[in-house]
């Protein structure tokens, strides 16, 4: 006669030598409530060689009783989930080390940026001072001052001083620009959407850039979903919209 056979999950290992605990799910039909009721039973299972780890999916087979609670043995390890955990642990260590080095790099870059900005601001302040002192200074000093002005202008590529162009790019001004772009697009969203949806090539281009193949080929996406993705793309001021109003 065939031996009793179950498939279960290892829920505990490492506490008893050559023994693991395996949870087996059972199912029976309850006539009182007229539906399948799930039950579970935990077995102590013989594992010669201590192979299984917690999380493994195993098939267990009945054997002659070898102790008061042990009458099953591991027949095969079906899914080695427990071994996966060890792999993940090793991967995590690498990833954390990578994160650390990235964080340090970012920190150093930020510090470098700050240093450069501080020197630039100091130079610009110097430039202001010189250009203010210029009219009241004598002939000999003027040549020297002019030289200094030229030097600073060349260093930062400033065409003229005092200049009408902004010399320092601020995040706030970038936000302002973005806002004006966004306002324009929100006002004309209907027209832009219609134009993009009518042009197959442009539409495909935007969809590909937005989804990056996440939902498969772009022409398999439902039209309404396509429209939503395109709308989201248009309403992000960082993106270019290839349509003229």
């Amino acid at each position: 006669m065939a031996r009793q056979n179950f498939v279960g999950v290892v829920i505990s290992h490492g506490k008893m030598n050559k023994t693991v605990k395996v949870r087996v799910q059972t199912q029976r039909y309850d006539t009182r409530v007229h539906k399948e009721i799930f039950g579970k039973k935990d077995y102590l299972v013989h594992d010669e060689g201590n192979l299984c780890t917690e999380g493994d999916l195993v098939r267990i087979e009945s054997i002659p009783k070898i102790s008061s609670r042990k009458y099953f043995a591991i027949a095969e390890v079906k899914l080695n989930e427990g071994q996966q955990f060890e792999k993940y642990e090793a991967l995590a260590k690498e990833r954390v080390a990578r994160d650390d080095s990235e964080r340090i790099e970012k920190f150093l870059a930020r510090r470098k940026e700050l240093d450069s900005i501080v020197t630039q601001v100091a130079d610009l302040q110097q430039l202001d001072k010189i250009s203010r002192a210029f009219p009241s200074s004598g002939e000999t000093e003027r040549a020297q001052l002019l030289e200094q002005i030229e030097e600073i202008k060349q260093k930062y590529g400033i065409p003229a001083w005092p200049s009408t162009e902004p010399v320092l790019e601020m995040k706030l001004s970038q936000d302002q620009k973005d806002l004006s772009v966004l306002e324009n697009r929100v006002a004309n969203i209907k027209v832009i959407l219609e134009k993009v949806m009518a042009d197959e090539q442009k539409k495909a281009q935007i969809l590909e850039a937005a989804t990056k193949g996440k939902y498969g080929p772009v022409d398999t996406i439902k039209p309404q979903v396509q429209k939503n993705i395109v709308r989201k793309w248009i309403l992000d001021p960082r993106n270019d919209v290839p349509v003229s109003l």
């Binding site: 999380g55 955990f85 993940y88 642990e89 995590a92 260590k93 990833r95």
Partner: peptide, 11 residues
């Protein structure tokens, strides 16, 4: 998501 879990606890 065991992979994310091990990353999170390690970090």
């Amino acid at each position: 998501n065991p992979e994310r879990y091990y990353y999170a606890i390690e970090k």
